[in-house]
Design a protein around this nucleic acid. Structure first.
Lengths: 118, 118
DNA sequence: CAGTTCTATAACTAGATGGTTTTATACGTG
DNA sequence: CACGTATAAAACCATCTAGTTATAGAACTG
């Protein structure tokens, strides 16, 4: 299956530095130096994070003289979200249970056993 | 921020065994033995995965005699999806670019420079 | 060509991860 | 109480990870 893709995608997202890099790239292309600037981290450290993101397919890189501008590639984010979306009913179910509970409390308070329409 | 939560959640999801466990729990509660059955893995191995899922808040555990039934807790999945949803426009943008390109090609073919309404 | 800038690679370290086997704990049953 | 079952904990191992520093390569600049 696409299990390897999900492995790499979720693993890449499991690091705050890499998520911050993606957030920065959401504003547009950036070079390695630009991406490294906000972090108290060496340039090779950032380059390693970029390699992880690239291998996960979350970014791509161009060429501009010495620079290797990075660009966000969002389709793997969609793949991850599609996986999560399969569970949407389970957290909505939690809200439903809470809603049901609140409804029961309201019914008890009114003493009629009738529930108002939502 | 909730950065630690996202770290733990995405890290927990970055393993196919753990994702399979969540998929199983989507069908209802299950004991450790039941969860371990499909995998060519020792029981302590599965217990370790369950500990990772529990620390990430993705499952909770009850008590039934010797058994510790596991239950899916979906709210952290929602948290992860909410993070991903912030990027939705970027993958939709890709479709938009593709759509624009196809539109241009169609316009070129017709030779009028006018685009048909979608 | 010499120097500077941008990035990648190599070599290393500390700590996390994913797995194992073995052992301990807790509970139910005869 | 003794035994079986369900689970956790401990100890260990191999591998991966995230970081470092130092070095090398590639491209511009004077």
């Amino acid at each position: 299956m696409a299990s390897d893709i999900l492995d790499a995608t979720f693993a890449a997202l499991a690091d705050p530095t890499r998520r911050a890099i993606l957030a920065r790239l959401a504003e547009g292309e950036a070079t390695v130096m630009e991406l490294a600037a906000p972090f108290a981290m060496s340039q090779p450290g950032v380059s390693k994070h970029l390699r992880v993101l690239e291998r996960a397919g979350l970014i791509s890189r161009g060429r501009d003289a010495q620079r290797r501008p990075c660009r966000l590639e969002a389709t793997r984010l969609k793949t991850a979200m599609d996986w999560l979306a399969d569970y949407r009913s389970y957290w909505e179910e939690s809200y439903q249970r809470l809603d049901d509970l609140l409804g029961e409390l309201e019914a008890d308070k009114s003493g009629t056993g009738e529930r108002e329409a939502l």
